[in-house]
């Protein structure tokens, strides 16, 4: 299945995000070998050069590393992935808070709403 890309952002930043989320979610395990650039390009249905650029960016962020003979791997640094997960969650919450605030809800009202909605979901 081709990955979904939004129109507004560059493909390469969206690939970086996509793989980052796969790491945070545990879809890619720590230290796991990732498919080759071409395989990933085919899966995502994107240009191999773009995929290569995205992986190099992830390498710069130390989220993946290359072993010269055997390919690319996900980082083994659990603390870093945990931190990434926290940052990601934080960002989602801030975005959510901004939206709620824009329709006039206070912090306490939002928290009550969240709890009420979670209650209804269970």
């Amino acid at each position: 299945m081709a990955w979904n890309f939004s129109k507004e952002q560059s493909i390469y930043t969206q690939i970086v995000e996509h793989i980052k989320i796969s790491i945070i979610s545990g879809e890619y395990k720590l230290g796991e070998k990732i498919p080759s650039v071409r395989e990933l390009a085919v899966t995502a249905a994107v240009n191999p050069n773009t995929m290569q650029k995205a992986l190099q960016e992830l390498e710069k962020m130390n989220l993946v590393f290359t072993q010269r003979t055997s390919g690319r791997f996900i980082t083994e640094d659990k603390a870093m992935v945990d931190k990434l997960k926290e940052d990601f969650a934080k960002k989602q919450i801030i975005d959510f808070y901004k939206k709620m605030k824009s329709i006039g809800l206070t912090k306490n009202e939002i928290i009550n709403f969240v709890e009420k909605t979670f209650g209804e979901m269970n």
């Binding site: 129109k7 507004e8 952002q9 560059s10 493909i11 390469y12 240009n47 773009t50």
Partner: peptide, 15 residues
């Protein structure tokens, strides 16, 4: 370059 177009214009090539 395609990514430059997207970054500069905030829209896809199709748009």
């Amino acid at each position: 370059n395609v990514d430059e177009i997207r970054e500069e214009n905030g829209k896809s090539i199709d748009s």
